[in-house]
Design a protein around this nucleic acid. Structure first.
Lengths: 191, 191
DNA sequence: GTCTATATTAAGATAGAC
DNA sequence: GTCTATCTTAATATAGAC
């Protein structure tokens, strides 16, 4: 008898994907506190207990939803990783999903608190995104596409900071054009 | 017969100020959800009901704390309003108060949700800060201190966005130097 | 010194978490 | 069902305008 772990069956993988989609909708509409796992389970046509088979807690479900969205954002159609010039397009995508965007903003701020369950996730995420962006900046500098009088990591932190910060301003004033403003950020970095 | 209001007594004004200071400490240490009004009242040496004489709700108390800090941040010693070159110093100040800084980040993201009690406050605040900063940028451009190939409001949104966004990164990684990075942001805007 | 708005409190209703 | 936290109500004490 084979007692090794088998991994997830195809059915389980599909169900998990479906749960993430449903949960994303509910979280986006109701916020973290406003979301009840009962409603998520109902919408997905399963029992609450089944939800706990896939995700160990409400916070775990939220983190999975955010990580899933993050992965889609940092990859473009075809599977190649997104880079600098894609930022305005990512912002445009986010503008189509205000609920999820607000959810991400709240979660990333809330999880800064020491001891928060998602703190490590966000810390690692920012470290990774900053490093990847700094790499993009350094390569663009070598190609002569960006000014060289700025440290790549500083540039990366400014780009990502502006992305998050302008997104927040957009949540308060949807007339702000995130893609246009981010394009201007990149222009400031040209030689 | 004159039935007009008299305004607050000196004692009440002083107590309100004291309550804001105590509440700032508790909110910073415990977060919004973690804070109990009982503890705030205890620390201030009054009854819970007295708190409600000064602030109509817990959220109202938080908003007052944030507005109070905001006012201190946008004013420098002497009473003149802070401007562009003061940003790194404001960031340095914030770095001395991580709890309050995190509180502000969480509140500003949470209040984006339609119907939130502090939504109008933050919307007006951002509108005001962007307008004031855009004015600073325009004047600096006229003096030849900043490059003129960027719209003042775009520049303002980028500066403020970078401020908020870098602050968030700093909360996850305190080795990030907010003042240095913001100085670099301003340098990117030089002619 | 009188008068009334303001400051404070005691007691408890209500609502949500566990 | 129990407990805890937010908020209400109603009543007393005090500050300060006149």
């Amino acid at each position: 008898m084979d007692r090794r772990a088998r991994g997830s069956y195809a059915k389980g993988i599909e169900r998990r994907r479906e749960l993430l989609a449903v949960a994303a909708e509910v979280f986006a509409a109701e916020g973290f506190d406003g979301t009840t796992l009962k409603l998520v389970a109902e919408r997905a046509g399963i029992r609450e207990a089944t939800l706990f088979h896939y995700f160990s807690s409400k916070q775990d479900l939220l983190t999975a939803v955010l990580a899933d969205r993050d992965e889609q954002n940092t990859t473009r159609q075809g599977g190649t990783p997104a880079s600098l010039a894609d930022l305005p397009r990512v912002a445009e995508q986010n503008a189509q999903h205000p609920g999820l965007t607000a959810l991400f903003a709240v979660a990333s701020a809330t999880a800064t608190r020491p001891g928060h369950a998602a703190r490590d996730y966000f810390r690692d995420r920012y470290a990774w995104v900053v490093a990847a962006t700094a790499g993009d900046v350094a390569r663009a500098q070598e190609r002569g596409e960006l000014r060289t009088d700025i440290d790549p990591e500083d540039a990366a932190r400014i780009i990502i900071g502006a992305f998050d910060g302008i997104q927040l301003q957009w949540l308060y004033d949807p007339t702000v054009s995130m893609p246009a403003t981010l394009t201007t950020v990149l222009r400031l970095l040209e030689p």
